[in-house]
Amino acid sequence: MAHLLGHRGCIESLRADLQDLQAAIADVTSRAGAVRFPSWKFPDKVSCDLDMSLLLQRYRHSESEPELSQHSHVVLLELLIDR
């Protein structure tokens, strides 16, 4: 599995999953209200206040920087846990 760390397909799949999950969260919170708990990934912030579009822009695949892609892969997995 380590050979998949930073793989473009994995990162794009995680990004799509996060976008889908964020849309579902937005749908539920529009009806039930926001749940104000600290973020697991960013403990200094409230989970519902995270700017997911900004985070998804920051953490993406980079052909020229494999280390950045690997870091992005891990962060995207952590964001799934956070959501």
Rank of each mutant, 00 (worst) to 15 (best):
D82F: 02
Q19C: 03
P43A: 02
L77A: 01
L50T: 04
E78L: 11
F37C: 12
E78S: 08
L14R: 12
L56N: 07
D44H: 15
I81G: 01
T29F: 00
C10Y: 07
W40T: 12
R36T: 08
V75C: 00
L54A: 15
Y59R: 02
C48A: 15
I81L: 08
L4K: 11
S72T: 09
L4C: 06
D82K: 01
L77V: 02
T29I: 07
D20V: 03
A24P: 00
I11G: 09
P66S: 09
A34C: 04
F37N: 12
R31T: 02
S64P: 00
Q70C: 10
L55R: 02
P43D: 02
Y59F: 13
D20S: 13
A34M: 05
R31Q: 13
K41R: 13
H73E: 07
R31I: 06
M1E: 12
S39G: 05
H3V: 09
I25K: 11
P66Q: 12
L55E: 03
A34P: 00
A2W: 06
V46H: 00
I11W: 03
H61T: 11
S69I: 04
P66F: 04
P38A: 14
R36Q: 09
L56F: 07
D49F: 00
H73R: 06
L50G: 04
H71F: 14
M1H: 09
H73I: 08
D27C: 09
L5D: 12
Q22S: 09
S30W: 01
P38K: 13
C48K: 03
L76M: 03
S62P: 03
G9K: 09
E63P: 05
D82S: 01
V74T: 08
L14Y: 11
R58Q: 15
I25C: 07
L4R: 11
R60H: 15
S62E: 14
F37S: 11
L55N: 08
A34T: 13
